[in-house]
């Protein structure tokens, strides 16, 4: 039926996306193709106004730039933990909030709220929690080890802080998608499974996860792209510190573009970031699409 509808209304659907597509091309594709990519071949300092063609020199320089390589590794670590953390947490919260539960709507709203608050605000709240609330709690409970944790004191602890806050903020949105996914699973399939003795964890693995694959595809896509572009939370929580140890690629690129004004070099970095995210998401889409099944 849906195929038939799609064929019948194809031109109408296309007409609907034209305005948005136009904006997308105008504000994203054109600047990328005619701005970022060409300027990555220039030695361009925005303030001095000097712009000299230097070929692929910017790209060569990238591979010996310790700060950039470190930010790349840090972004990978951050991405891994955030993607796994948000998806697992979102999946299980969605699972429990899809069941018949008292105060379900309220709980859903509570979980979703962090997502609609800006990353900067979220970070400010967490800075207070890390440096004010947790130490006070530790002191009043007499637990010195809790009170004396320096959340931003070492590169490792700063990384953990960023991961915690990123997961806390990202979970709500993915949870909503998982909840919608759970609702699309036909109840007759679940009931049939139950009659055959498929319950509990078995039900999740054998029935729900396979039927949720389209949602998982989308969620992984969203969280991978988001994790690699991480900017606001690291900026507001640690500003990349201590000593640039928690600088993501986006933050590193930003600093080059707008603090040092090496516009050409920063463009080369954004092209690399674009390629990394594109390659990873294409691979992920191919893998997860293959796992999708029809109910």
């Amino acid at each position: 039926m849906s195929e038939l509808l799609y064929k019948k209304n194809r031109s109408f659907y296309f007409l609907l996306i034209i305005p948005a597509l136009f904006l997308y091309i105008f504000s994203l594709i054109i600047p990328l193709v005619f701005g970022t990519i060409p300027s990555s071949f220039y030695d361009w300092n925005l303030i001095e106004g000097s712009k000299n063609f230097i070929g692929i020199e910017n790209y060569i320089k990238l591979f010996s730039d310790k700060d950039f390589i470190h930010s790349l590794i840090f972004t990978m670590i951050l991405a891994f933990f955030t993607i796994v953390g948000t998806n697992l947490l979102a999946f299980f919260t969605a699972y429990f909030l899809s069941e018949k539960l008292f105060g379900k709507s309220l709980s859903r709203a509570m979980f979703f709220i962090p997502n609609i608050i800006s990353g900067i605000m979220v970070s400010f709240v967490w800075v207070f929690i890390f440096t004010g609330a947790i130490p006070s709690l530790g002191k009043s409970l007499g637990i010195d080890s809790l009170a004396n944790i320096s959340w931003f004191g070492t590169p490792q602890m700063a990384t953990i802080s960023i991961i915690i806050v990123s997961i806390w903020q990202g979970t709500g949105f993915l949870m909503m998608l998982y909840i919608t996914g759970f609702q699309t699973i036909p109840t007759d399939v679940l009931e049939a499974g139950m009659l055959d003795g498929c319950t509990g964890i078995k039900k999740i693995i054998k029935i729900q996860i396979p039927l949720l694959m389209p949602t998982i595809t989308i969620n992984l896509f969203v969280s991978i792209a988001g994790a690699f572009k991480a900017f606001d939370i690291p900026l507001a929580l640690t500003a990349g510190g201590p000593s640039k140890s928690t600088q993501t690629i986006a933050l590193n690129t930003y600093n080059d573009a707008f603090i040092s004004f090496n516009t050409g070099y920063a463009s080369a970095k954004s092209v690399i970031l674009f390629l990394i995210v594109a390659i990873i998401t294409i691979i992920q889409l191919r893998i997860t699409r293959k796992q999708e099944v029809e109910a």
Partner: peptide
């Protein structure tokens, strides 16, 4: 211009005991 950022980020490592 830009020396301040280099000093700030690098010396911060000494305070964090990572350098």
């Amino acid at each position: 211009s830009g020396a301040n950022n280099i000093i700030a980020d690098t010396v911060q490592g000494y305070f964090a005991n990572s350098k």
